[in-house]
Computed example of a mutant assay.
Amino acid sequence: MKNQTNKKLVQISFFGMIIVVMSLTPLGFIQVGPIKATLVHIPVIFASLLLGSKFGGMMGFIFGFMSLIQNTMAPGLLSFAFSPMIPVIGTSSGSWLALIIVFIPRIIVGLIPGYLYHKTKSLSVSVLSGSLLNTILVLSLIGILFTNAYASAMNVNASSLIKIIVGIVFTNGMIEALIALMIIPPLYKRLVKLGQ
């Protein structure tokens, strides 16, 4: 029992460190035009599959926290949506609503893949769902909570935001999901085989 607990602590620490390192280097957040594409969701999804939803949710929280730090320390055009310390476009102050965007989708990304895999036994469905959920939830929440500022940042009318969001989901979101799909299932299968 003690060995299992120690093994789990080592695994949690390992995934947490990968998330921190990726978040603090160009590996984790890649600036693509006005948005930052992310690969940090990969260790979060992997942890959810390997350790279960609860621990995946913890890794999602770390992902959110590192996103908050990264957007505060190295702000980009949309950082107001990820850090309450960055002024919202058109105002002189930040908004606490950024905390919803930075944490809720990332925690959900940690919860869902492990749950889905437990129910469906499909790695592909679990990985794709986790990755796409991150993109869809983040962009949708920005569109809902920061409609005017988001439209201003993207240089479009607020009524055009849905097209922008759908376009990003089908470009960046699909690329992020495909990268996750290429990395996670083979690595997961290998680790499970080694652990038997």
Rank of each mutant, 00 (worst) to 15 (best):
63 F>G: 02
64 G>S: 01
64 G>Q: 00
65 F>H: 03
66 M>I: 03
67 S>I: 01
68 L>K: 00
68 L>T: 03
68 L>R: 00
69 I>G: 00
69 I>P: 00
74 A>V: 14
76 G>D: 12
77 L>T: 15
77 L>Y: 03
79 S>Y: 10
81 A>H: 05
82 F>R: 02
83 S>T: 09
83 S>E: 08
83 S>R: 07
84 P>T: 12
84 P>R: 12
84 P>I: 13
86 I>Y: 06
88 V>C: 04
88 V>W: 04
89 I>W: 03
89 I>N: 07
89 I>P: 04
89 I>R: 09
91 T>V: 11
91 T>N: 08
91 T>H: 07
93 S>L: 10
95 S>T: 07
95 S>G: 06
97 L>P: 02
98 A>C: 08
99 L>Y: 05
99 L>A: 06
99 L>I: 14
100 I>W: 07
101 I>E: 14
102 V>M: 10
104 I>A: 14
104 I>Q: 01
104 I>L: 15
105 P>T: 10
106 R>W: 03
107 I>A: 02
108 I>H: 01
110 G>E: 04
110 G>M: 06
112 I>R: 01
114 G>D: 12
114 G>M: 11
115 Y>A: 15
116 L>D: 10
116 L>I: 15
117 Y>D: 03
117 Y>R: 04
119 K>Y: 13
120 T>L: 14
123 L>E: 12
124 S>V: 15
125 V>Y: 11
126 S>V: 10
127 V>F: 12
129 S>C: 12
129 S>L: 11
129 S>A: 15
130 G>R: 07
130 G>V: 11
130 G>Y: 07
131 S>R: 05
132 L>M: 14
133 L>D: 02
133 L>N: 07
135 T>L: 01
135 T>I: 08
136 I>R: 04
136 I>Y: 01
137 L>F: 11
138 V>K: 03
138 V>R: 01
